[in-house]
Amino acid sequence: MFLGGIIWSAVAKDYNSLLASRVFASFGYGAIESLGPSIIADLFYERNYSSAMAVYAGFLSGGSQIGPVIAGYLIKARGWRWFFILCAIIAAVNFACTTFMLPETIYEPTVEEELAEDAEKGAHNHIDEVQAGSQAGHRVQMDYSAYGKGLLSFNVTKSAKERGVVKSIVYLFALPLPMLLVPGVLIASAMYGVILGG
């Protein structure tokens, strides 16, 4: 949807068409925004999640400030349509990489005590095991058939199966709304929106 909206923006004939294409692309871009935090949630323990999200948000904000500078030079040199052409190229590469290299994990730790014990042991035991395995000549084999199935599978979480998919979607949609009433979150959201909009 995002890629289609950008292509539409690049070939728009008048302002109304351009405006409609930007609105259309924005709905697709909103879905893209949820991938970063989801990937970070899969990669990091809960205690490290906020630090990883801060780095992610920093790069997101930095890109929002650097992107317009690049766009200004590109538009001056080649015209405004070339900005959308560049965005379409980047979005197409991103879409292909996401489709073929990012299987849905639905990662749900089953026993929190095991994770806590693993965290207490620290990284030293894991590093020792990896070094011992590599010194013994063991190679990690990737199961490409399972990976391919993971790319084409669509799963739901255990809670969604128990609650029902529609109720789970409504719950996930409504879950962050009470947090918007917390003054600190409201101020941070407004500041982020003003800076990003600028």
Rank of each mutant, 00 (worst) to 15 (best):
V165S: 03
Y45E: 08
F154D: 05
G28D: 04
I70P: 00
L177V: 15
V111D: 15
A20Q: 04
S9H: 07
A71T: 07
F59S: 10
R78H: 14
P183V: 09
F95T: 14
T105E: 10
I6V: 14
S26F: 04
L177Y: 04
F24M: 10
Y29T: 13
T105S: 15
P37L: 08
I32P: 01
S38V: 11
E112F: 08
I195Y: 08
F154H: 09
Y15T: 13
M191D: 02
M1K: 03
Q141I: 14
L175S: 06
I70R: 02
P68T: 07
G72L: 10
R47E: 11
L43G: 00
L18F: 13
Y15M: 15
G4Y: 03
A96V: 15
M191E: 04
L172W: 13
I127C: 02
I39Q: 06
A92G: 12
F2D: 01
I195G: 14
A57L: 15
F2W: 12
R81N: 14
A96T: 12
L196T: 03
P109R: 14
S50W: 01
G197P: 05
V182Q: 12
G5Q: 07
Y192D: 00
S145V: 09
V170E: 05
F100D: 02
E129M: 12
A119H: 07
V156M: 11
G164D: 10
